[in-house]
Write a protein that binds this DNA or RNA. Structure first.
Length: 740
DNA sequence: CTTTCGCGAATTTTT
DNA sequence: TTCGCGAAAG
C-alpha cells in the first residue's frame, strides 16, 4: 500500500476501512447517524482515484446541492495538490444530474431542448387548468390532492397514457383524465415538473439501449447517498446506470427515511441485497457525533418502530448531558427560553453557528424569529426557496423563462399583464379563443395579435408591444452577442418589462423591499458560476439564462445553511437531515405537531414521524433540548396542547424532565396510546362495559369514544375517566351484539 | 381595464 | 393569521 493510500485509511474504524476499500461489486453501507458517512464516501472516492480510476468514470449522487458541495470540498481536501485529479468527477444531486442528461439527450429522452422546469406554484397553475379542462369540479378536486396522485404515478413510471382507466372506479378514471390533461399542458408548454426530470431519464435509460450503454461505459463507479430516500424512478435510474461490473455503492440508513410522502420507497434500501445479489453489506456501528445520553435517548425512541431493525450504535464520547425536556406556557415563552438557552451556550463558548432550532412545520419559525430579533441573537432561517417564491422574483424569473422557452404559457400568463399594461382577462380570452381555433400556441397567437378580429385596437397595440419586447430580448440573448453578460441581461429585463418602474412609483415600504429583492436577484445572477460545459465552449446568454434558471429551480432549503456564518440556524426537521450542531433545540414537541396531526391515524405515517424525530435528535453533538408549550396559537386560534407521545417513548434515564410542573393544574398526563386501541374492551365505574371505537389525541388529552353496552356511546378523556382495559377473555362478548 | 374589498379555505414535511 | 379568489366599484 502506498503512503497516500495509507493516509486515506488513517483513523478509520475497521468497518469504515472495509467500506472505503471495497471498490468492486455492489456495496451497501448502513450508516447510522454520526457514523462518519461523509468521511467514508469521500475517502472512498479518493481511494478509487488513488487506484488509478479516471475521475470521469466516477458518479456520486446526492439529494441536496449542499451535500454535493460538501462532498466535492472534502474530496478536494483529500487530494494532494494536483487538483487535476478531480476534473471530470461528477458529484451532483439526483435532479441536477437528470436535468443535465436531459439537456444532453433531448431527443432520446423525448423532451424539448429548452424545457422549463415547473416548480410547485407553476405546477399548481397547470393542475388547476387541467382540472378545468377535464370538466371536473374544482371544489372536489384540489390541485394538492390531484397533484399528489399524479406524482405517485410518475414516481412509479406510469405515464399518462398508461394510466389505468378501463373499468376503474370514478376516482381512478377521473385522476386518469386529469393526468392526461395535465400532461398535455406540460407538453404543449414545453415544461417538465420535478417528477418528470426523474421519469424522463428513467424511461430513456430503460428503453434506449444505446444511451444506456453509453452512460454505463462512461460511469463505471456509481455512488448514491441517502439511499433510503430514493423512489422507484431513482431506483430505475441507478440500476440502469450500473454496468456489468455492477460497481454500485449505496449509503443510507432506513431509520432516517423521512420522505415516504414524496414517494421515497424504503424497500429500495431494505431489498438492496436482494436486488443486487452477492452485495456486500457494511454496517457502521460507531457514533462519532453525539454523547451517550443523546445516543441512548434517540436509540430508545427509534426502537419503538415496528419497522426498525435492531442494531447497536455506540459512542466513545462519554455520557454527556441528559436530554433536557422543558415546558413553556405558550410559544412566546418557549421562544424566550430558547433565547436564554442559546445566550448561555454562547457565553460558555459555543459559537452561534453551532446551534440550531428544529421544528416540524415552518410556521413555527415566526415566533422564534421574533424572539431572536428581540433577544439580539443572530439567526438565519434555512429557507432557500423562500426568496425565489416572492411574487416579484417569480415575475422576473417568468420573463426570463419566457425568453428561453416561448411555449411556456404558465410563465406567459403570469407576466402578460404584470405590471398592468392594458391586457386584461377579456383580451386574453379572445386571444385564447383565436389560438385554439387556429391551432396556435398562446405565444404564437400573441405574435399575430393584429390578426385577431375580436380584439380592440388598444389591446392589439398592447399585445404587439409586449411581443416585440420579448422578441427583442430573445434575439439579443440568442445572437451570440457576448457584449452583455448575464446580470446585465437580467437587470435589463427587470427594467424594460416595467417591473422596476411599477415598484418605483409606489413608494411604500413594501415596494422598496421588493425593489431590493430584484436587485438581489441581479446580484445572484452575477455571483452564479455556470457549470463547466463538455467542450468548454462559450455559452450564449440564452444558454446561460437557461442554465441559471435550472439551478434556481433545484435549490433546496438545506442548501442555505452556511457553515461560515455566525448565526443560529432555524429550520425544519426535514431540512436538518445530514447536518450536525453542538446544540440542538427541538421546539413544539407536542402531540399533533410532532407527530403531526395528519399522521396520527396511520401507523406507517406515525413511524415516519418517529424517524423524523429521530433524525432531529441525532443532529445534536452534546446538547439536546426538547421543549413543548402548554398552549399554542395556530391560525389565530389558541389551543391547549399536550406533550408529544414521543417523550413517553424516550428512555427516562436519558432525560432531564424540567417540565413536570403544570402551570395550569390541568392534571393532564400524556397517555400512552399503545394500550388504548380501537376494539379494546374497557370498563368504566358508572357506564360499565364497553368497546373503544375511536381514539383521538386532543389538546386537552387523549379522548376515547367508547360504545357502552348499556349507555350508548360516550367520548371521554382517557386520563381522567378511570377507564380500565379489560382482558377480552375475561369478559367475552358472548351472544352480545354490539352496535357499530 | 384596474383596484379594492370581503369572504372562505387552509399548510406538514420539499427535490 | 394569511392567502387567493371572485365580485363590485372606480
Amino acid at each position: 500500500m502506498s503512503e497516500s493510500e495509507h493516509e486515506l485509511l488513517n483513523g478509520l474504524t475497521d468497518a469504515q476501512v472495509d467500506a472505503v476499500t471495497t471498490t468492486d461489486g455492489p456495496l451497501l453501507v448502513l450508516a447510522g447517524p454520526g457514523s462518519g458517512k461523509t468521511t467514508v464516501v469521500t475517502r472512498r472516492i479518493a481511494w478509487l482515484l488513488a487506484q488509478g480510476i479516471p475521475s470521469w468514470q466516477l458518479l456520486a449522487l446526492t439529494f441536496t446541492n449542499k451535500a454535493a458541495g460538501e462532498m466535492r470540498d472534502r474530496v478536494d481536501a483529500l487530494l494532494p495538490g494536483a487538483s487535476g485529479d478531480r476534473r471530470g468527477l461528477t458529484i451532483m444531486t439526483f435532479h441536477g444530474f437528470c436535468a443535465r442528461l436531459l439537456r444532453q439527450y433531448p431527443d432520446e429522452a423525448r423532451v424539448p431542448s429548452n424545457y422549463s422546469i415547473y416548480d410547485t406554484t407553476d405546477r399548481r397553475a397547470a393542475l388547476k387548468q387541467a382540472i378545468r379542462n377535464a370538466g371536473l369540479d374544482s371544489g372536489n378536486w384540489t390541485p394538492a390532492s390531484v397533484g399528489e396522485a399524479i406524482s405517485q404515478c410518475k414516481n412509479r413510471l406510469t405515464t399518462a397514457e398508461q394510466h389505468d382507466d378501463g373499468g376503474g372506479d370514478f376516482y381512478t378514471r377521473s385522476i386518469g383524465r386529469i393526468y392526461r390533461e395535465y400532461q398535455a399542458i406540460l407538453d404543449r408548454n414545453g415544461a417538465l415538473d420535478f417528477n418528470d426530470l426523474l421519469l424522463k431519464v428513467a424511461v430513456m435509460l430503460r428503453d434506449d439501449d444505446e444511451t444506456r450503454q453509453a452512460l454505463q461505459d462512461r460511469f463505471r463507479y456509481l455512488m448514491i447517498d441517502e439511499y433510503q430516500d430514493t423512489n422507484q424512478a431513482q431506483f430505475v435510474i441507478a440500476s440502469s446506470l450500473v454496468g456489468p461490473q455492477r460497481n454500485i455503492c449505496v449509503v443510507g440508513d432506513p431509520d432516517q427515511s423521512i420522505y415516504g410522502w414524496r414517494g421515497a420507497d424504503i424497500s429500495n434500501i431494505l431489498d438492496f441485497e436482494h436486488q443486487f445479489s452477492s452485495a456486500k453489506v457494511v454496517s457502521l456501528g460507531r457514533n462519532f457525533r453525539s454523547t451517550g445520553h443523546i445516543v441512548e435517548a434517540s436509540a430508545g425512541l427509534i426502537r419503538r418502530n415496528a419497522s426498525h431493525r435492531e442494531r447497536t450504535l455506540h459512542t466513545e464520547l462519554g455520557d454527556g448531558d441528559r436530554v433536557v425536556v422543558a415546558g413553556a406556557a405558550d410559544e412566546h415563552d418557549e421562544a424566550r427560553q430558547l433565547v436564554d438557552l442559546f445566550r448561555d451556550q454562547f457565553m460558555a463558548g459555543t459559537p452561534w453557528r453551532e446551534m440550531a432550532v428544529l421544528y416540524r412545520i415552518n410556521a413555527l419559525s415566526r415566533v422564534l424569529e421574533q424572539a431572536f430579533r428581540d433577544g439580539q441573537i443572530p439567526y438565519v432561517v434555512a429557507r432557500g426557496t423562500a426568496f425565489y417564491e416572492r411574487a416579484e422574483i417569480k415575475d422576473a424569473l417568468s420573463y426570463l423563462r419566457l425568453v428561453v422557452n416561448p411555449r411556456d404559457e404558465v410563465a406567459l400568463r403570469r407576466v402578460i399583464n404584470t405590471p398592468p399594461r392594458g391586457i386584461g382577462k377579456t383580451s386574453m380570452d379572445r386571444v385564447e379563443k383565436y389560438a385554439i381555433l387556429n391551432r396556435l400556441g398562446l405565444g404564437e397567437a400573441i405574435g399575430n395579435a393584429d390578426q385577431v378580429p375580436a380584439l380592440t385596437a388598444r389591446a392589439k397595440a398592447a399585445l404587439g408591444r409586449f411581443d416585440e419586447m420579448v422578441e427583442a430580448w430573445r434575439a439579443d440573448a440568442d445572437g451570440g452577442s457576448l457584449l452583455l453578460d448575464l446580470p446585465d441581461f437580467v437587470s435589463r429585463v427587470i427594467r424594460e418589462s416595467g417591473l422596476e418602474k411599477s415598484l418605483r412609483t409606489g413608494a411604500s415600504e413594501e415596494d422598496i423591499a421588493r425593489l431590493e429583492n430584484l436587485d438581489e436577484l441581479v446580484t445572484a445572477a452575477a455571483e452564479w458560476t455556470p457549470p463547466p460545459t463538455p467542450d468548454d465552449d462559450e455559452q450564449t446568454i440564452l444558454q446561460q439564462v437557461a442554465s441559471w434558471l435550472e439551478s434556481i429551480a433545484l435549490v433546496s432549503d438545506a442548501d442555505m445553511v452556511d457553515p461560515e456564518n455566525g448565526s443560529v440556524t432555524l429550520m425544519s426537521l426535514h431540512a436538518a437531515k445530514g447536518l450536525e450542531f453542538d446544540v440542538v433545540a427541538m421546539a413544539g414537541f407536542e402531540q399533533g405537531l410532532l407527530p403531526h396531526a395528519r399522521s396520527l391515524e396511520d401507523d406507517i405515517e406515525r413511524e415516519e414521524e418517529r424517524r423524523l424525530c429521530y433524525v432531529g435528535m441525532t443532529r445534536a453533538r452534546r446538547t439536546l433540548h426538547l421543549s413543548h408549550a402548554h398552549r399554542r396559537t395556530v391560525r389565530g386560534i389558541t389551543e391547549r396542547t399536550m406533550p408529544s407521545q414521543f417523550l413517553g417513548e424516550i428512555p427516562a434515564d436519558a432525560m432531564d424532565r424540567q417540565d413536570d410542573d403544570d402551570p395550569w393544574g390541568t392534571g393532564i398526563t400524556p397517555v400512552s396510546t399503545a394500550d388504548w386501541q380501537v376494539g379494546a374492551t374497557v370498563r368504566h365505574p358508572t357506564f360499565g362495559l364497553g368497546m373503544i371505537r375511536r381514539v383521538v389525541p386532543r389538546p386537552r388529552g387523549t379522548t376515547a369514544t367508547v360504545e357502552f353496552l348499556e349507555y350508548g356511546h360516550r367520548t371521554l378523556l382517557v386520563a381522567q375517566s378511570n377507564l380500565e382495559i379489560v382482558d377480552p377473555d375475561e369478559h367475552p362478548w358472548e351472544g352480545i351484539d354490539i352496535p357499530i
